[in-house]
Structures are given as structure tokens and as C-alpha cells.
């Protein structure tokens, strides 16, 4: 096979560049444990109201015994419930989200909090909000004619003003 010497050099260069990109991804994935939300956990979306975790009175923000925060949300046309939540900055927050109806997506712009919410599966994602502020939580997958209106509010407060709460108490609802 005939390959021009210049083209050979180009091929080596291309492979090196691709190699560098892949090395960066594998480093962050394997050494820093940074992965997209990939949590295969089936759930019956038709009976969330009866489930131990996603029944209406179980939704909201919960402080775990180890000080981390867990947020339990239901995505349903057209909002993320509860519609308003408060969270502390600088603290790992784990969101667990289930859809009660169709496909949704959730994204808090300017942060890396985002995941698809697929009916029949629990979405789980952990993130830390670096800065206090008011953040909109938007649905970013078409879910019906009211999709434009599907958003909720997240208020991130400074860590110092976050109340110390006993475990298993919903706060910030």
C-alpha cells in the first residue's frame, strides 16, 4: 500500500491527538472516578405513589447520617416535585429521581447536575454546588406540549447558614 510520507506523519499525529483525548477521559474516569450517571435500577413508574422511597411524603431533601445530602424527586408533567428545594453549597448532594409518566431530562444550567429521567429506571447523580444562588432546574427532554413550563427552583445557600438537622427529617421543602 502506498502512503505518502507526509500523510504518514499526519496519521501518527492524528493517532497521538486521539490518544491524548482518550488518556484524559480514562484518567478522569478511572483515577478520579468521574462518570456520567449510570445506575441501572428498575422501578415501577406506575406505582411510585406506593413506593417506600418516592411516595409523596418521602420527597424532598434529607440529611444523611454522614452529613451528605440526599434529594428525592419525582419528575412528572410538568415539574420536578417538590417544586422548590433548598440545598447547601460545598456539600455533596445525591439526587435520586424517578419519572411518574414519560421521558424527561433534568439539567441545572451552569452546573454539572444533569441526567435523563427514563420511566422504569431510577436516575442517581451526585454533585457539589460550589456557589450559593438561585438555580432553575429545567426539563431538557421533550415530554409533551407543556414541556416549556417544566422547571423547578433550587436555592443554594452558603454552607454556614445551612441548619444542622437530625437525620431522617425532611428539610428545605
Amino acid at each position: 500500500m502506498h502512503i505518502h510520507p507526509l500523510e504518514k506523519r499526519w496519521i501518527y499525529l492524528v493517532l497521538a491527538v486521539v490518544g491524548i483525548f482518550l488518556a484524559a477521559i480514562f484518567y478522569t474516569a478511572l483515577a478520579r472516578n468521574i462518570h456520567p450517571p449510570s445506575h441501572i435500577e428498575p422501578i415501577d413508574s406506575a406505582s411510585l405513589h406506593l413506593s417506600a422511597e418516592f411516595a409523596e411524603d418521602k420527597l424532598g431533601v434529607w440529611t444523611q447520617p454522614d452529613g451528605t445530602i440526599r434529594v428525592t424527586l419525582v419528575a412528572a408533567r410538568y415539574g420536578f416535585y417538590p417544586r422548590e428545594i433548598r440545598l447547601p453549597a460545598g456539600t455533596p448532594v445525591t439526587f435520586r429521581i424517578a419519572s411518574a409518566d414519560v421521558l424527561h431530562g433534568v439539567h441545572i444550567p451552569m452546573t454539572n447536575m444533569g441526567t435523563m429521567v427514563v420511566p422504569g429506571y431510577v436516575s442517581e447523580i451526585t454533585t457539589t454546588f460550589p456557589k450559593p444562588g438561585e438555580y432553575p432546574m429545567l426539563c431538557n427532554e421533550y415530554c409533551g406540549l407543556g414541556h416549556d413550563h417544566m422547571w423547578s427552583k433550587v436555592t443554594v445557600v452558603a454552607k454556614e447558614s445551612w441548619p444542622e438537622a437530625s437525620a431522617a427529617q425532611p428539610i428545605g421543602r
Partner: peptide, 28 residues
């Protein structure tokens, strides 16, 4: 499907790796 909950991280990474390789024919 990177952001989807119904597939695992390992397969996503495997697909992602080959995704970078498919840039090679375009660069050629």
C-alpha cells in the same frame, strides 16, 4: 445515552472510546 440511567458506565466508556476512533477517518 451517556446521561441515561438504564445503561452502565463500562459500556458507555467502551462506546466512547470507539467514538474517538471514528474521528480518525474524518481526519484522514
Amino acid at each position: 445515552l451517556y446521561m441515561d440511567p438504564q445503561q452502565g458506565a463500562g459500556f458507555k466508556l467502551s462506546h466512547g472510546t470507539l467514538t474517538f476512533l471514528v474521528a480518525v477517518p474524518t481526519l484522514l
